[in-house]
């Protein structure tokens, strides 16, 4: 049976997604690697994977690629897993290529689907900012494979945390890291960086009045999104400049972009990159935003937005 080693960095949604991704390979022996974490977290992992290997936490308890490489490399040597799997997140970007190079494994990065091949692995990933999909493969590797998967691309049926894997503690492998943690900076309350947001609700002048901002704020809150806006909204002082998307504002790369009362001037559209899934709600059927959006709704935003917010909250429970 093939071995898959899953590197866990985030203990909330990620483990189930990675377990789902591992399932693409059929009947496999799955091992989760985690550095640090609590006993209950390890138990949770044991429900998803056949084995959980727990390395000590780095002394500063922060994601340190060099430290993790040192802990994982001996494990790879001993296990010789067919595939190493982790998420293509910021931490993934930090660790995966380094580890793939050091373990001499072909790497398939940022996959949105995975497929097992008799002699290797194939995957689909997005290129050119999501405009094109590419099917890639790595085969006949003597050293095994490495894949990182996109967050949210794999989902697990609810009833799958049924395993009762073993939990094994790993010894600490000492390192003299050439990269050291200094501090974590938490953005000040109120200071938002919409360029890093995955979901944005953008407001245009169709909102008509500052008092109406409340309904989009509620919608953003329900969606777990940040608010963005067009230039006229900033001009009117309804939102701060740090939320303006466009040629004279910020460039954003969200996954979901929901516009409310945005006409779709080229200045505004010029600030949206990365091909997000774009939804437009506007009263004017001829608004250029509908040429750019994936989904369009012509209608009164004052009816639609509160209804949408209500139904989102319903679905999210």
């Amino acid at each position: 049976m093939r071995d898959i080693l899953v590197l866990i960095e985030d203990l909330i949604d990620a483990p189930a997604e990675l377990a789902a991704a591992a399932r693409c390979f059929g009947d496999v022996q799955t091992t989760a690697f985690v550095s640090g974490g609590t006993e209950s977290e390890h138990q949770m992992l044991a429900g998803l994977f056949d084995c959980v290997k727990v390395a000590p936490a780095a002394s500063d308890a922060n994601w340190c690629a060099e430290f993790l490489c040192a802990q994982i490399l001996p494990l790879l040597d001993s296990m010789q897993p067919h595939l190493v799997l982790m998420h293509h997140t910021n931490n993934g970007l930090d660790l995966a290529p380094l580890l793939a190079a050091k373990s001499d494994r072909p790497m398939l990065a940022d996959c949105i689907s995975l497929e097992s091949r008799e002699n290797g692995v194939s995957a689909v990933r997005t290129v050119f900012g999501g405009k094109v999909h590419a099917r890639i493969s790595a085969t006949d590797s003597a050293t095994g494979y490495f894949a990182t998967v996109r967050s949210g691309a794999f989902s697990m049926p609810e009833d799958t945390a049924t395993k009762s894997g073993s939990i094994v503690a790993l010894p600490l492998i000492e390192t003299a890291p050439r990269r050291r943690f200094i501090e974590t900076i938490t953005p000040e309350a109120g200071a938002v960086d919409i360029t890093q947001s995955e979901i944005l609700v953008a407001v245009g002048r169709g909102i008509d009045d500052e008092d109406n901002m409340e309904i989009v704020e509620e919608l953003a809150d329900a969606l777990g999104a940040e608010l963005a806006c067009t230039r006229p909204v900033v001009d009117k002082g309804w939102l701060e400049k740090s939320r303006q998307v466009g040629t004279s504002g910020l460039t954003v790369k969200p996954k979901i972009y929901l516009t409310v009362g945005v006409s779709g001037s080229f200045q505004h559209l010029g600030g949206i990159k990365g091909g997000p899934f774009m939804v437009a709600i506007n009263q004017d059927a001829a608004a250029p935003i509908f040429a750019a959006a994936d989904v369009g709704i012509v209608g009164d935003l004052f009816d639609l937005v509160p209804l949408l917010e209500e139904k989102i909250r319903e679905r999210k429970g």
Partner: peptide
């Protein structure tokens, strides 16, 4: 100028 959109109080 359309791209630059100078900072101003009222356009």
């Amino acid at each position: 100028n359309l791209f630059h959109e100078t900072e101003c109080e009222r356009r």
